[in-house]
Amino acid sequence: MIKITNLHASINGKEILKGLDLEVKAGEVHAIMGPNGAGKSTLASILAGREDYEVTEGSVDFDGVDLLALNTEDRAREGLFLAFQYPVEIPGVSNVNFLRTALNEIREYRGQEQIPAKDFLAMVKEKSKLVELDAGLASRAVNEGFSGGEKKRNEIFQMAMLEPKLAILDETDSGLDIDALRIVSNGVNALKSDNNATIVITHYQRLLDYIVPDFVHVLHDGKIVKTGPKELALELEEKGYDWLK
């Protein structure tokens, strides 16, 4: 699905990623953990195509496509989805209009017809149930006045609507209470299939009780320093990160 090789990246001349390697196959869930400042969110931003970062070395193969050669919107259209740590508000733009625009742009890129309004609304109804999103929220402006939990649920709702090949969840658990965590996780799990993959970026082992990873990676100082099965997360919870440095 995605193969990252020797990725180096910097911002304002400061190197953040220092030769990162990672391969995620279809049907897999990978968790990336690590201390603050290790480069976890930077990795997510670079894969999504944020312009602030400069890739100085390395390559990213996304299902046969050179990901780094694509602009941000085309990466999304190829099937890469980022669930933001801090989803922004877009006042006056309804969630449904936003999603319909996004969905039709993706479909156009793939040479598909625009989605008929009726099918679209049926899809909204079906997918909003997945994250127990109030039907009213779908017609409200994008994230405007949403609580922290609602914003995160809305991210997963959007993910459900856009059906990406690879979803990157950037600290989706931050700021969630137990109930919201369960709802969001159930949504992610329900969307899992043999044809897609998920990268979960998190600080805490707690999320991984709900979204069970196939592999856990420890990111430290811009590199993956350890990879293990899901039990590695428990070990980290107990010992912290210092022993890996």
């Binding site: 195509g49 941000t72 919107e73 990466r75 999304a76 933001f84 936003f98």
Partner: peptide
């Protein structure tokens, strides 16, 4: 950036916003 990440082009993103 949020709009772009959802596959929306910059022109349409500005139009929406």
């Amino acid at each position: 950036f949020y709009c772009l990440q959802r596959g929306i082009s910059e022109e349409k993103a500005i139009g929406l916003i």
